[in-house]
Structure formats: C-alpha cells, structure tokens
Design a protein around this nucleic acid. Sequence first.
DNA 1: TAATTATATTGTAATCATTACAAAGTAACA
DNA 2: TGTTACTTTGTAATGATTACAATATAATTA
Lengths: 144, 144
Amino acid sequence: MKITFEDLSNKLKSKNIRLSHQRLKVLEYLVNNRCHPTVDQIYTDLHKEIPTLSKTTVYNTLNTLIDADLVKLITIDENETRYDIDTTTHGHFKCESCGAIYDFEININSMESEDLSYFKINDKNIYFNGICPRCIKEGNNMAN
Amino acid sequence: MKITFEDLSNKLKSKNIRLSHQRLKVLEYLVNNRCHPTVDQIYTDLHKEIPTLSKTTVYNTLNTLIDADLVKLITIDENETRYDIDTTTHGHFKCESCGAIYDFEININSMESEDLSYFKINDKNIYFNGICPRCIKEGNNMAN
DNA sequence: TAATTATATTGTAATCATTACAAAGTAACA
DNA sequence: TGTTACTTTGTAATGATTACAATATAATTA
C-alpha cells in the first residue's frame, strides 16, 4: 500500500492547495527519495532540474505540506531537520557512524504509559541511535 | 533513587573534568530545574547569580556534560534544544497548547523491532505530542 | 480566449541559535 | 609560590530559517 505521486496530488487538490510545478516536484522528490532528505539535499538536487528554484520555496513548500499532513518533520538530531513522506507511525534509526537513517516497524500500541492516562496523544515519535549492520561489519564502530 | 548534586560532582571528578564554579552551577541548575530547560533559560537565570557568566560557557559546559554522559540532549521540536539531567531512558510528552514537557515512564524492553535485529542500539528516544490534562480541562485544545 | 484576482515564487535581507577563536583568568600540581 | 594546562569570556563568524516586497503564475470570471 505504498503511497503514489497521484495519490498525493489528489490529496493536494482535496485540500485546496494549488498544484504548482515546484510543489509537485518537491512531492515527487520525497516520494522517490525516501532517505529523509534535508532542505539542502532537496534544493541542491531539484535545482539541477529547475534552475530558478529558490531555497525559500523549498522551505515554504515543505511547511505547506506539513500543515496539510502530507509530510512529517523529523528532528532526530540537532542542526539537521529532515522530511519524511511516510506519515504513518514508524521508528527511525540513525547510524552514528555513517549517518544513514533507517525506518523500522514497531508496535506502537504496545507503547502505552499509565503516566499519560489523561493526556490526549496526537503524535508518537521513536528515534534510536547506534551502529548499523553495514558499519558493524566494516568495523566502523568507534565513529561519533 | 534520585540523583543528587554530590553524586554528580563525584562523577565529574571520576571523569577528570575540572569542578569549576560555572560547571557546578550549571549542574546544580539542572538538578533543581527538571523542566528540561533551554540554553537561554539556563543562561538567563544563572546570569542573575553570576553576572560575568557568558552564554558560550553555558554551551561549552553542556557539551562537556553531554560528552561525559551526565546530561542528555532533547530535540523534541525544531529550534529549541533542551537539556535533561535524567539520563535514564524515559519518554517525553510535549503539550502543543502550553508547551510544557512532561516525563513519562515507559517499558523500553517492550519496544523491540525485528527490523533492528542486526543493529547495535546505543540510545532510545521517545517523544509524544498532544494536549496535557490541564489544557484539556481549560479547553485549550485548539492551539498549535 | 482574455482579463481579473488571489496565491506562489523569488532574491535579498533579517533573525536567531550555535560555534570558532584568541585573550584573560583560574584550577591543579610540582 | 610558580608553572602548566585547562576554562571562561566576548566578539565575530557561520549556518539554518524566516520576513518581506516585487514579480510571476494559477485559477476564476467575463
């Protein structure tokens, strides 16, 4: 049940968000690049295709998409805001050695806490850090 | 088993980190103010006591304490890095209405994921968002 | 299709958090 | 007490994000 680009443009329409060229391109980029890119990565790559693209537009577009619940913001580490087209609840693992971010499935319902009985929970975020299998294999276990 | 200021200065000693006046004050502040303060809050409050205190020192000190595993960094929302003297694994809940951050207990062992079988996990972070009981009571459910 | 209106994009400048750096100060130790 | 190494401080630099006004574009109406 992977979300497609068409699903997303229909969602935009239904939310009365104009389907501008830039917005569609940013959406398309996020669908095709599920590595949780930063603004800079998105801007640098799309700039090759759209030479007039401004970084402000990338910020504006991402904020619009976040407001519309089409994109989720990830703050797994300071100083690098990332964006995820997958808005379903799942965990993120960041490798301290190579910096890659992995998605992982986790049973959210098992994560109840009595301390939150009277809280209204809107969103759950799970971030793990450590060393990924590839870096373990290559012996890159020391890196920061 | 609440950690005390004495425990912490002993830990500093054992890690060969000098017990400067500023460092002890920042540590003391974190022990006494478990609201997960920002650099700005720490600086503003301590500046009243220590007029010569520099914000750079607060940053330096916090980074030193983090490297020594005495303090944990919290990135629950963009643009506001927070610091926690409680380094045991626990969850954080941020109220979208009043901005308060609550700690909650959660069974970390129940949070296993097959996807991470071959990963080395060093740290687990759990952040929830929503509305806290006080704001629900007062009807502040709409705020951002 | 052409004209109108509202919204989006762009580039520049402003803001804010964090870090770099060098001079001055302080703690630890001989 | 003197020496050495480390810490603090203030200023300047960096980098991410936002504000803003001019221009361009999409949607709508005639």
